[in-house]
Design a protein around this nucleic acid. Structure first.
Lengths: 192, 192
DNA sequence: CGGACGTACCTAAATGCTTTAGGTTTTTGC
DNA sequence: GCAAAAACCTAAAGCATTTAGGTACGTCCG
């Protein structure tokens, strides 16, 4: 029988595809092995256990997302960049629901400190520097942005945003407007 | 042997406690049966399957959260009510991590349309009516608020908000300030 | 060119969870 | 006091995770 010649990366990539295609819950080592034409136990040479597999998908998704965001926000600033940033998140979640679910799972400290995670954080910071935010508030703004974007997509994914009027798309635009306004108006230190 | 005299509600309540105590992942019918001093198969008289059990915890949590929020925002308005609303969410997530995780899971259409879900939505709407928001934007504001609060807590839970400076608490306050500002400033229809 | 070594993959097996099927006992309602 | 309903049981099939130990393929070095 032809040998599959797997690597850790190949196994994780296959896991990501499986999760996107059949749903995150069906991401089992058995199903993965079946799809790869390999015995389940063989996968343990490439991946420590199921948790490590999921963490691998998480990290893969972080990198892919960072790549897309770098492309999307390049050359833009202000509201344009914000829209590109958020829409790229949304499109990624739509196109790769399994990977996106993996992104929502708790990550190890190593992953949080990993290169793709840092890159994504750096890109977000860079984009927010297009707004007149005091340096001390940049991290707050980063956290608010990440919370809002991910929270919105999570609400959508878990059905909390019903398909009633108004359309989800309108609320998305409204939320981005709100964030844009907040970030834009934060330089006025003294309130009237 | 004394009979446990379980009901569907009792099983779900025990599941919620188990999930809070030992983590959501250990919420298995086996562990639950063990804790209740009952055979695993017996639980299937009260709960259709594992997914239904989780959905039950989800619905239970919705009701509990709605109760707490009703208490917290009663008599308050504006920024006070907003803070109470958000902090109640945060405290609930802290105190009942298992139930809170259940809340993040996809829910069936029946749960989305359930009484506690409607109550929570109504409470949120009522609170936002304390702001000068046009009627047409109330739903947008509701969604933004839910997305931000849940997104922030999710970020915290999954480790994305590292324990570096500035403190998470400061970012939380900053985010609430931002939301308050947005909701407060939305009555100015024509931009200058 | 040929063996040695590492790696990819295998079989086998233990453990544990989910779920269905069907039987027994307790409670409840008339 | 009896019949029906509800609560609980045993048994068993099916699948997933994980460990242990073995076989075959490629590659590197003498």
């Amino acid at each position: 029988m032809a040998r599959a010649n797997l690597t850790s990366a190949a196994v994780i990539a296959a896991a990501a595809e499986l999760a996107d295609r059949d749903g995150f819950d069906t991401l089992t080592l058995s199903a993965l092995a079946r799809g790869l034409g390999v015995q389940t136990a063989s996968l343990y040479s490439h991946v420590r256990d199921r948790a490590a597999l999921i963490e691998g998908v998480h990290r893969l998704a972080l990198g892919e997302l960072a790549d897309r965001i770098a492309l999307a926000i390049g050359g833009r600033s202000g509201r344009d960049a914000l829209t590109a940033f958020a829409d790229t998140h949304r499109d990624y979640a739509r196109q790769f629901p399994g990977r996106w679910t993996a992104l929502q799972r708790p990550a190890s400290a190593a992953t949080v400190r990993s290169e793709p995670a840092g890159r994504l954080a750096a890109l977000t910071l860079a984009m927010l520097r297009g707004y007149p935010l005091p340096e001390t508030e940049l991290v707050h703004a980063t956290r608010l942005l990440a919370a809002t974007v991910n929270g919105f997509l999570a609400l959508q994914a878990n059905g909390s945003i019903t398909h009633r009027q108004p359309a989800t798309e309108d609320s998305w635009q409204w939320a981005l407007d709100a964030l844009d306004t907040v970030f834009r108006s934060r330089d006025t230190e003294g309130k009237p």
